[in-house]
Design a protein around this nucleic acid. Structure first.
Length: 403
RNA sequence: GGGGAGGUACCCGAGUGGCCAAAGGGGACAGACUGUAAAUCUGUUGGCGUAGCCUUCGGAGGUUCGAAUCCUCCUCUCCCCA
């Protein structure tokens, strides 16, 4: 029923940074095979941002690997840990989320996770299940398992402390909560990004303290955002969301730096290492197209991937118009002559958020209609249906005048 | 509880009475170059139908012809002592 140890290990180890400890993982796998019992692989996600991107999808795909190997995927929705906010790797206290935000984010999370995991086979648990029942004395007891010195060994905390950035007391509780989750779901293996290692190890300590066999901690690399240097995150705006339009996913992928390609291939696609190696020998642009298609295929399908790649070439290589241009409807009643102030046109239809921004776009040569560039912010244009408005390099709209 | 230092635009950070819509950097946006690359270079980056006007420097008052800058109170943060 379960694959052999080597086969399983091979899959499990791809794209991981560290396994603490590998011997224990092997033991667990052996026992699993012998007793025909699936292992429980845990991944905790805090619904702190409403979207999943290909960076935080990395550990989710790792969880999927376990699921495909026949083990039990346990997904923790950290509706209580989200109240605290994971201090890992950040340089300031995270804002506390309201219950409504958490519930809203949870909903989109679950919708999106279905793109990666087999939801029906996934054990989904909310950590409010046990945390909301806790009494203050329980919290005190839990807190007693951790020392301040150990907490301060962490880079993120010690840096904040020495540079005078506040650390709130409740942030110390976070890893304890995450570790406590492991006890409650009887975790055999916990997956997390490399920045999670501390919390994962705390889980082991807490389990040991309760005389439970410690979980194996498995870390996956953090994926840099499309800017190429900072960790991919929603708040930095350097992410590729798995729920974005295929052409957005593809376009954003094409914009990453060449040297980031290998990592994206390895962590954001299902391609084999051999396939990746040979693809990277091609012209970088060609390789990047393969990458873009692979990522789109992962969350949509190959046909859509082919289409967006084709469209991309049309627009940016052949400099033609895209196949599908968003319609920009203008009511005829706005003006009888259809003469409209360009600035107003841009602002009214979301191409700029303020008049100032629209003026800037225009005077810098970023706006054209039917290939005619307008550079005077005071410009009024005579618009007709069918005219093509272009803003910047990649925003297009076809003007449609409605009665 | 006592003492000290601070809160400046999206972020970091300069600015101690007028020359401040506020240096510099980062980010973002646009342009050039290109492979829509990346890197680099140039420009823009509070609002307003913009040679002008309006609103900003934690909050509320006050002094002054004039306040980010001085005073009072409030509030938040950091450090030292207890």
């Amino acid at each position: 029923m379960f694959k052999g140890i080597d086969k399983q290990l091979n899959i499990i180890k791809r794209g991981t940074i560290e396994i603490v400890r590998e011997e224990e993982l092997i033991e667990k796998l052996q026992r699993s095979i012998k007793t025909n019992t699936p292992l429980r692989a845990k991944l905790g996600l805090d619904p702190t941002a409403p979207d999943i991107h290909i960076g935080n999808a990395v550990p989710i795909h790792k969880l999927r690997n376990f699921q495909e190997l026949g083990h039990t995927a346990v997904l923790i929705i950290g509706d209580y840990t989200a109240i605290v906010g994971d201090p890992s790797g950040v340089n300031k206290t995270r804002p506390q989320l309201s219950h409504e935000d958490i519930m809203k984010n949870t909903k989109t999370y679950l919708d999106q996770i279905g793109k990666i995991l087999d939801i029906d086979k996934t054990e989904i648990r909310y950590n409010s299940e046990w945390f909301k029942e806790m009494r203050f004395t329980d919290v005190i007891t839990l807190a007693s398992k951790m020392t301040v010195a150990r907490m301060m060994e962490r880079d993120d905390f010690s840096k904040r402390y020495s540079s005078g950035v506040p650390i709130s007391l409740h942030e110390f509780i976070y890893p304890l909560m995450q570790g406590y989750d492991s006890i409650m779901v009887k975790s055999d293996i916990e997956i997390g990004g490399t920045d999670q290692i501390f919390s994962l190890l705390v889980g082991r300590d807490l389990q040991r303290d309760k005389n439970i066999e410690p979980q194996v901690a498995l870390t996956t690399p953090l994926l840099e955002g499309i800017d190429g240097n900072k960790k991919m995150s929603k708040s930095l705006g350097n992410y590729i969301g798995i729920y974005e339009e295929p052409k957005e996913i593809f376009g954003k992928t094409m914009r990453i730096g060449d040297d980031l390609m290998r990592k994206y291939f390895e962590l954001a696609t299902d391609m084999t290492m051999e396939g990746i190696d040979s693809t990277l020998k091609e012209h970088p642009r060609q390789a990047k197209i393969v990458l873009g298609k692979a990522i789109v295929s992962r969350y949509y399908n190959e046909e859509i991937a082919r289409e967006v790649a084709k469209e991309f070439d049309r627009v940016f290589k052949e400099h033609k118009l895209p196949d599908n241009i968003d319609k920009l409807e203008i009511s005829a009643s706005t003006s009888t002559s259809h003469k409209i102030w360009l600035v107003k046109l841009l602002v009214d239809h979301g191409f700029a958020s303020t008049n100032g921004e629209a003026r800037r776009l225009i005077s810098q040569g970023g706006v054209s209609i039917d290939n005619h560039k307008y550079t005077d912010p005071a410009q009024e244009v005579d618009i007709k249906s069918g005219m093509i408005l272009k803003v910047g390099k990649r925003r297009f709209a076809e003007i449609v005048i409605t009665q």
